[in-house]
Every structure is written in structure tokens, then in C-alpha cells.
């Protein structure tokens, strides 16, 4: 055992928590500063257009190399904190699965935004812990969220917020409230319906011996056809109504973000 640092041994949860919180905040701040340096700015430029970056005097390879070193530095901080928190490091912490999870969190949060990976990591951890307690299928839901993001929101959650800066700046955000609230209920019905169907199938296949299951705080009989029909109807009807309202949302969005003369 190493001697305690300033009398703190970092054994209790509280001590470890504050240690990690301190380093996370400090590292986040340093990362932000990195984005404001010449090489940080050029990292953006290289991502945007690597060829042109070369023609303004920067070797894209060197820019990527420096970025990679910086990323490695912060990954090192994370690794040290991980070891203190879990007191164990195995092959699992370095395998593809782990790398994929980090990538997934980044994409869900939003690539290209400073806050993107932070939001992504928070949401991903919530999915893993909170939903992981409720259902065995959390990984499936994470995957579905990921597919949804890639298909409809390639800029991620942060990108979704950033998109709305345009109507907010133009003072037209009010135009979006009505179509958004219209699509909310059918959209919710669709999501609940499809989750319920997935959970029902999972229950019957893996816990078939238990006749009753609880979902969304309601207990029901899985052998009766009522929940099946109900959830299937919710899914189908929710989907169709959402699709109809989605057109209205798209139209309202076009109107709310239209700027005369831009993008000829």
C-alpha cells in the first residue's frame, strides 16, 4: 500500500467520487482549451477538409498525430481513475466491445460538438444502468437508438439542439411548438408499443413459465391475446399518425428555418 496522500487513502466511495469528479472537470476544461489552440483549430479543419488543410500549410498527418497524442493523454487519465474506482483492470477494459461503447456514446451525443460526447456518455451510462436494471434488453435498445441516430440525426443529440439555434435566432421557434406537440403523443404510443412487443416476446421466450409480467408498472397476463393486440395496435396506429404529422413537422421546419437569399 502506498502512503496516503494528504491523509486521504481514496478508499471510501465519497473520497473516490470527489477525486474522479475533480479530474473529470479538470480534464474537460483542458480539452476545451485544446480546441482553442492552433493545432486544435486545425484538427477541426482537417476533419472538415483534409486536403485543403495541407494547402494552408499543415500536414494532416501531423495534425492527426498531435490530436491522437492529446486523446491518448486523456485516455490515460481516464484509465488511472478507472483503476482507482474499480480496483481491477482486465482484458475487458481494452477489448473491442469497450471501444465500440465509447464510439457509440460519441455518436449518440453528437460528433463534431464539444458537448456531444459528454451528453452521449451520460445518456449511454443511464441506458446501461437505469434501463439495465429494468430489462435484459438494454443493449438492444442502445443499438436501436444508435441506428435511429445514424438514420435520422447523424449530428447526434447535440446536433439536434444546435439545429434549433437557427429558428431560435430567427425568433420563429413558436412555429414549431404546434407540430411538435402534435407528433409527441402518436410518437410516444409507437415507441411504447414497440418496446412492449419486444418485451412480450422476450418474456414468452425466456420466462414462459411465468404467466404474468409487469411492464410500465402494469401487470398483465401474457397468455391472453389482449396485451398483444393492444400493443400491436398502438405500434401500428402510432406509426401511421406519426408519419402523417411528420410531414407537418418537416414543413414547419422548412418555414421556420427559411432565410431569404441563403443557399442559392
Amino acid at each position: 500500500m502506498a502512503p496516503p496522500t494528504f491523509g486521504i487513502e481514496f478508499i471510501t466511495q465519497k473520497e473516490v467520487y470527489f477525486l474522479i469528479a475533480f479530474w473529470v472537470l479538470l480534464s474537460t476544461f483542458c480539452m476545451y482549451l485544446f480546441t482553442q489552440t492552433p493545432v486544435g483549430k486545425m484538427a477541426n479543419a482537417v476533419r472538415d477538409n483534409p486536403e485543403r488543410a495541407e494547402f494552408v500549410g499543415y500536414s494532416q498527418r501531423w495534425v492527426r498525430y498531435v490530436s491522437f497524442c492529446a486523446a491518448g493523454f486523456f485516455a490515460g487519465v481516464a484509465g488511472a481513475l478507472f483503476a482507482i474506482n474499480y480496483e481491477i483492470l482486465t482484458e475487458q477494459n481494452l477489448n473491442l466491445n469497450m471501444s465500440f461503447q465509447v464510439l457509440l456514446a460519441t455518436y449518440i451525443g453528437g460528433v463534431g460538438f464539444f458537448l456531444g460526447p459528454i451528453f452521449g456518455a451520460i445518456l449511454f451510462t443511464l441506458l446501461q444502468t437505469v434501463i439495465g436494471l429494468q430489462t435484459d434488453l438494454w443493449a438492444l435498445y442502445t443499438g436501436l437508438v444508435f441506428i435511429f441516430m445514424v438514420m435520422f440525426l447523424p449530428a447526434g443529440l447535440t446536433g439536434l439542439f444546435a439545429m434549433h439555434m437557427i429558428p431560435i435566432q430567427l425568433g420563429r421557434v413558436g412555429m414549431l411548438i404546434k407540430p411538435y406537440s402534435k407528433i409527441f403523443l402518436p410518437g410516444l404510443a409507437f415507441v411504447i408499443g414497440i418496446i412492449a412487443l419486444i418485451e412480450l416476446i422476450n418474456h414468452v421466450r425466456h420466462h414462459g413459465e411465468e404467466q404474468f409480467m409487469t411492464l410500465f408498472w402494469v401487470e398483465f397476463d401474457t397468455t391472453s391475446f389482449v396485451p398483444w393486440v393492444l400493443f400491436a395496435l398502438m405500434t401500428i396506429v402510432g406509426f401511421y399518425i406519426s408519419r402523417i404529422f411528420a410531414k407537418e413537422v418537416a414543413e414547419a421546419w422548412g418555414e421556420a428555418t427559411f432565410v431569404e437569399g441563403e443557399r442559392r
Partner: peptide, 21 residues
């Protein structure tokens, strides 16, 4: 940002990560 990035090398910043642009 486009213009500023194009100035960086010529103004001697190179791969600096200690200047705040």
C-alpha cells in the same frame, strides 16, 4: 474560422497547443 486557420502557419503558430487563438 476559415480565414483564421489559413493564417495560422504563416504567422508561425505551427502545431502549437500552448497558444489560445
Amino acid at each position: 474560422e476559415n480565414v483564421r486557420c489559413s493564417l495560422l502557419w504563416a504567422m508561425g503558430y505551427k502545431y502549437s497547443f500552448w497558444h489560445m487563438v
